[in-house]
């Protein structure tokens, strides 16, 4: 489902002539199988977020290949990656990344809008999704009017609305209290079990790491030898 081959990345900082190169990821290779929940753990600065951003296509790798669903996404241009994203990927962010001027309904509906789904189908699917995450009664609320847990549920509903086979999550429980965190992790497990969605989760939280079928540890931009099975 997701294959990373010899992925390396570095950041160049400073002005021309006085540039400093900071290697972030060094020759990383691993595979995530269909229907798996894989968590990536590591200390701060280990390159977890950079790895997720590379897989998401938000930054382009310097070296190596990224394959998803049989597509070599590391070769796709911005427009083609955008199309790939809208059809195959769902995202859950630590800070939810909801558009504050849109209601919960509009935020969840947005991916369908971008996909060009008809208004009637959009309404039906969005309402179904909001009901599934238990927020149908809050559909007209703006993100600022919702709790952190509710906002993250809106964010999950937005990720799920296009039925993506893969969900990429970056510290999904980072902004939640422990009770809400537990609820969310249960929900992720349910989605994985019921819908067979593959999850790749970046976390430094042990509780989150525990829900994964496998955990990959990153240290100084490299995969630590020996994959930890959950």
């Amino acid at each position: 489902m997701i294959t990373i081959k010899n992925l390396s990345h570095e950041f160049v900082i400073g002005k021309k002539g006085r540039q400093t190169i900071i290697p972030v990821l060094k020759n990383i290779s691993f595979t995530v199988n269909e229907g798996e929940i894989v968590t990536i753990v590591g200390r701060s600065g280990s390159g977890k977020s950079t790895l997720l951003n590379l897989i998401s296509g938000f930054i382009r790798p310097k070296e190596g290949e990224i394959w998803m669903n049989g597509v070599k996404v590391s070769d796709l241009n911005e427009a083609k990656f955008a199309d790939f994203r809208i059809h195959h990927l769902g995202f859950i962010f630590q800070s939810f990344q909801l558009i504050p001027s849109m209601t919960a309904f509009q935020n969840v509906e947005l991916p369908l809008l971008l996909k060009g789904v008809s208004e009637r189908n959009r309404r039906q699917q969005t309402e179904e999704m909001l009901e599934r995450v238990g927020l149908l009664d809050y559909q007209d609320h703006y993100p600022g009017e919702l709790s952190g847990g509710q906002q993250q549920r809106v964010s999950i509903a937005r990720a799920l609305i296009v039925n993506p086979p893969i969900i990429l999550a970056d510290e999904p429980t980072g902004s939640l209290d422990s009770e809400t965190e537990a609820e969310l992790l249960e929900f992720i497990k349910d989605l994985n079990r019921d819908l067979g969605i593959t999850f790749l989760i970046i976390t430094h939280d042990e509780k989150v790491a525990e829900i994964g079928n496998r955990t990959i540890e990153l240290r100084d931009g490299q995969v630590v030898e020996g994959i930890v099975l959950a």
């Binding site: 998401s56 994203r85 990344q97 991916p111």
Partner: peptide, 15 residues
């Protein structure tokens, strides 16, 4: 920020 979110969830630059 909104544009960034839209791009992140799959908005085409052309759109």
């Amino acid at each position: 920020p909104d544009i960034g979110i839209m791009k992140a969830i799959g908005a085409n630059p052309k759109t």
